[in-house]
Write a protein that binds this DNA or RNA. Structure first.
Lengths: 330, 330
DNA sequence: CTGTTAGCGCATTCAC
DNA sequence: GTGAATGCGCTAACAG
């Protein structure tokens, strides 16, 4: 039970705690013999430095807090993987905290980070970042990912508008004219931007002022519902561009189940390029999620080290991945 | 910059730091007026308690360390989701740490947890848990998940042997006799148990002593390679049972690409039930990953609170999910 | 090179 | 009820 502390090591090695500290941290102002004795004692006692105490006295936690929304599947794992890779290579640990929808809980989660981490990575496409930053622990350095934010904070965004435009032009180039969009949940930044990009591009490149937009919530079932609505409504639609892959997949499967030829009769496209997309041949916009996570960490770390990385906004452009749900028409 | 501390609040509220501490932590031995003054001062200054200092003085971090191998995709996100849900509901945070293949690095990661967390959740199907526990911070309470472990540690395991048996019997019941297995990487606990279960079940229920076993590494490409080997070798095989879904998928796609009818000519089955499996109609064994993560956390927390949860081993049995890659033969 | 001392920010005795 | 004092385990001056 009695946790072995630096003092136990000092006693056994017959030196002061200061020397133990120096020896353990590899400082060069220790006599080789002393270091050897310390290391031996530490090994014998099974001593492991108490990171908490270390942080307190150094005012440095070597950890960064990650606050993510309730992401699903690959999206979550990919961004965390990217962050972890970069963080661990820089000697930082990740303190995870899911931020549920409730802004109050969100603030709570953020506050719990004070004194445990050196900086924050926040991803909250559904909240206003200002509300968050207000309740934040005494201006902890932070990087926002996909957040509605002002220009005074370091931010990383996906170029949703540009991505939508690319996809619309791809569909147009393949001969589709009557393109419908399945939107994401209201209040979600990505959803709104993708919708806006869709509308903008349809106006610019197709001369369509009020394209058909079906409601959705980023989930598979919403895509299926949209497909059913499409079939029932009898609109003249020859392509569906969903705001994310899950909805595109729901739509795709529902269409095929209903006997609709995809892409022959209706083309389907999504956004994100989650792994399943490849297996289903879904055309989509690839967002390099892990890369974004890694960038977020590296920007934060640079700011922690150097001091003054400007609060710029970084835009990550997705790439189109054309597969079989939107092949060129004959 | 100057982080506001408990002393600043004390000064502004004109009370002692002790009273601030009491008021902030909701103790009842504080005069209502005093509490009000403290809370007002804290709000005015934007004071947020320093968790690190709190942990040090209370010898309690309210955090649990999670050490996972380099998991991919859904598997990773699901287990973390399950853990996070349970942990946050109990007021604990998760400190994440990827444990790469190297045992030395693994020990390193574990040691970094000392003084930051109250307990450990370790998942390491590829390492000997003893090696790990040896280098571990002064017996931190821990729960092992899918680890080769002795009986002296709390452990949660997937019933891989039983799962393989269930799958083999499913295949046999559907008229398949010549069943081949694609194995996972050597040294991996799950891989070994699934293989052992396969052999055992083939002997028991099919009377086959030396069933065909192809090498693999849990990755899609290994499944594809196995498929090619199968086609080239010309063995009489009418079913393939892969040690995980990724290989099953690689095998499935390669077979179909080569013009082999699945399941008509060869049935294919996997293990895990990752989300993609559903879209491809893959028959597999469902492992309730999130549930396992949640259980791991709750066992750890109970042990942290109560003191003496016995070091029992908990076995989670997977369920068979029969889909179209192994339908009943006519 | 090494030991002594003073905090880091907070919770918690113990007196008052 | 409240305040002063002590310590959690460690690092960082500051003397020797």
């Amino acid at each position: 039970m009695a946790q072995v502390t630096i003092r136990d090591v000092a006693r056994v090695a017959d030196v002061s705690v200061a020397s133990v500290s120096r020896a353990m941290n590899g400082l060069d102002n220790v006599h080789p013999d002393t270091r050897a004795r310390v290391l031996a004692a530490a090994a014998q006692l099974g001593y492991v430095p108490h990171a908490g105490a270390r942080n307190l006295s150094m005012a440095r936690a070597h950890a960064i807090g990650v606050v993510l929304p309730d992401l699903h599947g690959e999206f979550f794992s990919e961004i965390v993987r990217g962050m972890d890779k970069e963080a661990s290579s820089r000697g930082f640990q990740l303190l995870l905290s899911n931020m549920h929808q409730d802004p109050a809980q969100a603030g709570q989660a953020l506050r719990a980070m004070r004194g445990r981490v050196d900086g924050l990575l926040i991803m909250a496409p559904h909240l206003d970042a200002f509300d968050l930053l207000r309740g934040m622990p005494g201006n902890l350095p932070s990087v926002l990912v996909n957040c509605r934010a002002g220009s005074e904070v370091a931010t990383i965004l996906v170029d949703n508008v540009g991505g939508s435009d690319t996809m619309v032009r791809h569909l147009l180039a393949n001969g589709h004219r009557a393109i419908a969009h399945i939107a994401g949940p209201q209040g979600n930044l990505d959803a709104e931007e993708r919708l806006a990009g869709f509308r903008l591009s349809m106006r610019r490149h197709a001369g369509v002022e009020n394209p058909l937009v079906l409601p959705g919530d980023f989930r598979e079932e919403a895509g299926a519902a949209a497909a059913r609505a499409l079939i029932a409504g009898g609109q003249r639609v020859d392509a569906v561009f969903a705001a994310n892959d899950m909805m595109a997949i729901g739509c795709l499967l529902a269409l095929r189940e209903a006997g609709v030829d995809v892409p022959g009769r209706i083309a389907v496209a999504g956004f994100d390029d989650i792994p399943v997309a490849r297996y289903l041949g879904l055309t989509t916009m690839r967002v390099r999620i892990a890369e974004i996570g890694a960038r977020a960490v590296s920007r934060l770390c640079e700011r922690l080290a150097g001091g003054g990385i400007p609060a710029t906004t970084e835009l990550h452009a997705p790439d189109i991945v054309a597969r079989t749900t939107t092949t060129m028409r004959a």
